[in-house]
């Protein structure tokens, strides 16, 4: 088992998350892509924590913080999606153009 395997898998997951973030039409799917990217970063942190710093595992501390922030982000993001759905009656990202020039 090597550090590089985990880093490569995390990089692939991050790229999949970017693709979904840009190309999704549904607003909920955009939030799911953001969760994918956050999980890729978590996997990176955990791999570094295990292979480079196995005694004082500071990467795991950072992962706990990232998980807490991600939970808060998911709650607020889904509340925003609900509010937009009430106002615009759609979840299509292409029609959320209130702040677009």
């Amino acid at each position: 088992m090597q550090l590089q395997y985990f880093l490569l898998v995390a990089a692939a997951l991050f790229c999949i998350g970017i693709y979904g973030l840009v190309n999704s039409r549904n607003a909920v799917r955009v939030l799911m892509s953001i969760e994918l990217m956050l999980n890729a970063v978590n996997l990176n942190l955990m791999a570094f924590s295990n292979y480079l710093d196995p005694q004082t595992i500071k990467g795991q501390i950072f992962t706990v913080f990232v998980i807490a922030i991600a939970a808060a982000e998911a709650a607020v993001g889904l509340a925003i999606v609900l509010a937009i759905y009430r106002n615009r009656d759609t979840v299509d990202m292409e029609q959320f153009n209130l702040l677009k020039w």
């Binding site: 039409r25 607003a27 909920v28 939030l31 799911m32 969760e35 999980n39 998980i67 991600a70 939970a71 998911a74 709650a75 889904l78 999606v81 609900l82 759905y85 009656d89 759609t90 979840v91 299509d92 292409e94």
Partner: peptide, 24 residues
């Protein structure tokens, strides 16, 4: 946290905004 809270939250949000529309 993720499977028990975030994923269930996302499922609830899908249930609340599940409008079957074809995107233009």
């Amino acid at each position: 946290i993720y499977v028990g809270a975030v994923n269930v939250l996302i499922l609830f949000a899908i249930m609340l905004v599940n409008k079957r529309q074809e995107f233009q």
